[in-house]
Design a protein around this nucleic acid. Structure first.
Lengths: 367, 367
DNA sequence: TAATAGGCTGCAATCGTTTGCATAGAATAC
DNA sequence: GTATTCTATGCAAACGATTGCAGCCTATTA
């Protein structure tokens, strides 16, 4: 570089005469690449590369490095992540698959994941699989084709060939929210047994003895674990279990909850409370109660699980189990980054503790 | 290919003798690439490439093409999107930036975007900017470094240097939810004037004459447009405007709404309804009302804007303006794809119509 | 029968970075 | 003053796909 020359665009035109054409071409074509920076600095591209990479920057003399950096931002150089990733086999990208983004449980998890990743220079490819298995498979293939460094799945089933496939391919994987039966995956989930325990304890403490249970799909770890926990805990609490008052819904949705509640009523059996395996199911109970002209909590107490945003504003505010949504995401991302750094890290099942939040949907049973 | 040979793994070991080593190396190393497929098929990589690309597949003879496809999935070949994108300058990736994913307005929009993109083979890189400008800038740079084909921004300000930058760089861009003052961008937004008109009409129809307004930040197009619309519409409806009863909050948040409502009360002026520029602000009003021991709608009617999921379950269910969340996303994605295909498409501002949903938070004013 | 056209496939350059290896010069040791 | 180590940089080969061009072969035409 000739120190006397400053580069206003106009000067460039005047000063660099015949070198103008390639410059203009470059500007029209696309943004500067590493070769442009190198030739402007009169060095080899590899030197520029080393300067721009923190790990190798010290290999280059300080003064030259500074000059290169100056030129790089003068030209507005930005590393092309495709080329870089192709060469290094690291994309600093992770894929995140969510079954339904409009289920309010997931956005905070996603946010936790993203913020954690962002801190380490990673970015998330997010996809909403819409609960369809086929699209989920396609999404995973799409993501692996993009050479993601790892995957976070929030929609695993207890037996999940997709999960097996991912593991087999050696792609770092972390499950969140749900896990599989085999313990060969790292997962961040809730302590479902503790949660159900707390809910049952609360209802029993209020004096409920006939407690109905609306569970979720048994193919999911949450649906299964909560169901088992209910059986176990209820027995421990000494309340009599009536199989007719235990229904496992097909989906964790409001309509499924509503239908399940109607089924409970149809049995003709008496119950004073219904413990549901998730907030949406509880909402379905609200719907059914209203249709039946029953009041909550005066006639029937209802509890949920998850403490979705805004359930505290519902009529009545829902008694439920709070799970640390953000933390779930943060931990999942942290563990994934660990696995990416070191793929041989032993798998680990992290179980976060839920907290009972008592609100207006539970009360002492009416005489 | 020698037709007599079938390839069970064990046979391969026996039959291919010395060719075993490279095969094993390949299997250990990573998944098959185009060269592997080519050499197994005894053709040049370019032929494989042509077969696997629908647009060029017809250049290759049908029988050879079929054989290559067979071998490709036998080897589990998947195109490396980095290499492909590097060469073609198309990544089939679009960046989506959302200010706050936990605001329930956004998930449906994101879902609409994703499903539309997915249909065309695109995938979304999603980022939650957390409303911080700096991180937003960094995110955009990160995404452009990854060579996204386009960008969808849901958090633009009326004057937005970031938006200008993106346009200047020639990256296809679509704004959603909010837009900028200049009409040099394609945007999908709501018809705010119509919405406010409907809300005012509803309140006036109920008999309200003293209507307070809690608006949003004036730096956003929604905040500004709704404010202007309120001024205009209220005048048209013949109700007297009291400047003290018009407050524009700094943020579209619950706490900002709460604070604004307290300010309204502090003026000592009489009003029977408050029209808020968004549901979260309305929720803040609920909070303030409760703190003040006032009832909604008996003492004060409240309206919102957006019809966020679940506001129908609040106590009281919120009267608000429904916007077609999914459609917002679908349109944004569609327009973006259009711009990606043809960057010279003239910019367009698409304005979707909101619909008034009357629920329990509005009533005839008390005498 | 020779010339021409058209259909298939191969060749090699390219996209933008990274990195092991080589080398020139400077600095140190003896 | 020479031998030896460093230091700083350049060289060139990857990474995995795509694509304009060239060339071969077969089929068609005059």
């Amino acid at each position: 570089m000739q120190p006397g020359r400053r580069h206003s665009p106009a000067e460039s035109v005047a000063l660099f005469g015949y070198s103008l054409t390639p410059m203009i071409l470059r500007m029209l074509k696309t943004r500067a690449n590493i070769k442009d920076v190198a030739s402007r600095a009169g060095v080899h591209p590899s030197t520029v590369s080393r300067v721009l990479n923190p790990a190798t920057r010290s290999m280059v003399s300080e003064s030259l490095a500074r000059e290169i950096v100056r030129i790089a931002d003068e030209l507005g150089y930005r590393r092309n992540a495709l080329a870089s990733g192709l060469r290094t086999r690291r994309t600093f990208t992770v894929g995140v698959i969510i079954p339904d983004l409009t289920n309010p449980v997931f956005p905070p998890i996603v946010r936790g994941v993203e913020h954690t990743l962002d801190g380490e220079g990673y970015i998330a490819i997010l996809a909403d699989s819409g609960s369809k298995r086929r699209s989920e498979k396609a999404l995973i293939e799409n993501m692996t084709a993009r050479q993601v460094d790892g995957l976070i799945l929030a929609a695993a089933n207890r037996k999940d060939p997709l999960v097996d496939q991912v593991i087999e391919q050696g792609i770092p994987l972390v499950l969140v929210n749900r896990t599989v039966d085999k313990h060969n995956v790292t997962a961040v989930i809730n302590d479902d047994e503790l949660g159900i325990d707390l809910a049952v304890g609360h209802l029993v403490g209020l004096g409920h003895r006939q407690i109905a249970y609306i569970g979720g799909p048994q193919r999911t770890s949450t649906g299964y674990a909560r169901y088992r926990a209910f059986l176990k805990t209820a027995k421990k609490a000494g309340i009599k279990l009536d199989r007719d008052l235990i229904i496992n819904a097909r989906e964790f949705t409001e309509t499924a909850g509503q239908a399940a509640f109607h089924e409970l009523i149809k049995t003709g059996k008496h119950f004073t409370a219904v413990l549901s395996a998730n907030d949406l199911l509880a909402l379905g109970c609200y719907d059914a109660l209203e249709e039946l002209g029953l009041r909550c909590p005066e006639d029937i107490s209802v509890t949920g699980f998850n403490d979705m945003p805004y359930v505290d504003r519902f009529a009545p505010p829902l008694t439920t189990l709070h799970i640390p949504h953000d933390e779930l995401g943060v931990q999942a991302a942290t563990l994934l980054l660990e696995r990416i750094e070191n793929p041989d890290t032993p798998t680990k099942q992290l179980r976060l503790e839920p907290r009972l939040i008592v609100r207006g949907s539970t009360a002492v049973p009416s005489a």
